[in-house]
Amino acid sequence: MDIEVQYIRIYRYCYFRLRDRYRAEDITQETFLRWFASDTYRDTGRTLQYLYTIARNLCTDESRRPHAEALPEDLPTNPDDPLLSLALRSELDKLSQEDRELILLRVVNEVPMGILCKLYGVSRFALYRRLQGILKRLRERLEG
């Protein structure tokens, strides 16, 4: 596991959960500190699940605190197709928090399906159908 890549991915996950770069970075570092502290925990191939579970729980605790900020407007867009980027962002905002999180984890952070199934406590089939449904809806809205 490339720790630098995973740091960025966990940070991105926290950022889109909390919508605050400083709090997201704090939570990311707290997640990794907890993982580092578990020095008797041997790598059994479930490190990602371990990291995302900690990050998810910490984000949930953090988002309950009353200082949420809006996502800044100057987010980078796709230079090849800025219109698509803006349209997609607007469609993503219409999705539920959990659906958005699923897209981020599976498509952007490339978390394996097996780990996502355990993270959400659902079967592979159910998760696959849900993911395909969200992507289909996104595609239809963007084309229509």
Partner: peptide, 19 residues
């Protein structure tokens, strides 16, 4: 690929400072 690239860009976060 187009949708994947667009999604990657849509979820692009500002770079972490203390990494």
């Amino acid at each position: 690929r187009k949708l994947k690239t667009a999604l990657d860009a849509a979820f692009e976060a500002p770079p972490p400072e203390g990494k």
